[in-house]
Simulated assay, not measured.
Amino acid sequence: MVLTDDIQTFVHGIPIEREFVGIYFNSIHPWMPFLSEKLFMERVLSPLGPARPESTMLVATVKLIALPPPNLVARSAIYKSIKANLLSAEALGLLELKIFQSLVLLSLYELGHAIYPEAYMTIGHCIRYGHSLGLEKTVEQDSPAGLDNLEAEERRRSWWAIVVLEHLMTLGCVDRASPVGHPKNTSLLPADDMVWEVDGQQDVIQHRLCDPPTATMGRFCLTAQAAILLGKVFMQIHDPANDEGMRDHEARVLENTIAALTEVSLQEGRLRGVGVCSPTTICYR
């Protein structure tokens, strides 16, 4: 894959110029922590190896989302070029985790800047690309052979990131079918953020979607649970098949579950010193 010149110019100076990397990991990463900072620094920004196109695209999307758009125009020329290069990667059959992660960041950029309907389309495209990589399987099984704990967890968190974004996207188009599907109750949730980021190689407690929420699960784990509950609320509202008595019962169960998760997320915020937690925000929606 040959990247266009403007992409090369946009990331010129990497890894010397790293200010935007710090902005990303200090401002954006805490509430959507799916990129491993350790792997990003060692394998993406490392000057020791040749610059691979998928790594360059990941750096470009990190820079795109970390810095204000030129002249405060969200649909900037570099945004359009990044989007075109990512589509070119798919057309060339390039299946790489870093391309998927770039698409997640592009989706997040479009959602954050209210670029519609592109955000809806990009999220759907990202989900299909993730299916091509088999990432949906990462939440249904333990780490596959050949991957260490850090890499396996990053793949799992990357899939959860697009699941969360897809459920948030549904807020604006609740009558459209979800392409991501519904995780099982036994699906593996993201590990505790603090443990994963401090030492991703050590064994961590692996929670499942059916587990009751606790303040020590980690913010991203609780965010994933909140997003799934949000999806169940949409199903409850727009599913006319259930009889009224059953719907009332399910509504009460959902209300109690959301209330419990809200309380836990507030506890987690106090425990970690976070003013507003992303799971709390989703619960209040």
Rank of each mutant, 00 (worst) to 15 (best):
V198M: 12
C173M: 12
I282L: 07
A51E: 13
L150A: 08
K63I: 02
D243K: 12
A241L: 14
L72Y: 14
P183A: 03
S88V: 02
I162G: 01
L103V: 00
V104Q: 05
R176V: 13
L261T: 00
L229C: 10
D239R: 12
R176P: 01
E37G: 05
L92P: 00
V274S: 06
P240E: 04
G124L: 03
C277R: 15
E54D: 15
L168S: 01
P144T: 06
D148L: 02
H12I: 05
S55W: 03
T9R: 13
L188S: 01
G134I: 05
L261G: 03
H207L: 12
A226N: 08
R270I: 00
Y120R: 11
D203T: 12
T138S: 14
E263V: 08
H182I: 12
T170P: 00
V174T: 11
D239S: 14
L45W: 06
T61S: 13
L209C: 10
T56H: 01
I258H: 00
L133V: 04
F10I: 02
S278Y: 12
K83L: 13
N256P: 00
E140H: 09
E118V: 05
M121F: 11
V139C: 10
L97Q: 12
M194F: 10
Q8F: 09
R252F: 08
D239F: 06
A227R: 05
C173F: 11
P279A: 08
M1W: 10
A152C: 04
